[in-house]
């Protein structure tokens, strides 16, 4: 396996991952584009917001506000603080 190995460390709760390179290829610049080059509407169409939710309103309420605020069709949150 060693000939494929490139070491890259991810700092995600002590999970360390290495990358195996199987093959190399050029990507065609005509198709797709790096995420940094997305326009704002494109960014919104598949975006994530790291919201500092105030204590008080529920996550569900905050999602509803943001949905209305940004005129979104779909929005969702990932996980309640103290799941019961």
């Amino acid at each position: 396996m060693d000939e494929f190995l490139v070491v890259k460390v991810k700092d995600l709760f002590n999970v360390k991952r290495e990358v195996y390179i199987k093959a190399e290829e050029e990507t065609d610049p005509r198709y797709g584009k790096p995420p940094e080059e997305r326009t704002v509407p494109e960014l919104i169409s598949k975006g994530i917001v790291n919201i500092d939710k105030p204590a008080g309103p529920t996550s569900h309420e905050v999602v509803a506000w943001i949905k209305k605020m940004l005129g979104l069709k779909r929005a969702g949150h990932a996980g309640t603080l103290e799941l019961l």
Binding site: S45, K46, G47, L70, L72, R74, A75, G76, H77, A78
Partner: peptide, 15 residues
């Protein structure tokens, strides 16, 4: 919080 199409990946964050 996930917007529009990104709502599809919220399960990845829950885990």
């Amino acid at each position: 919080m996930a917007l529009e199409k990104a709502t599809k990946i919220t399960s990845a964050l829950m885990g």
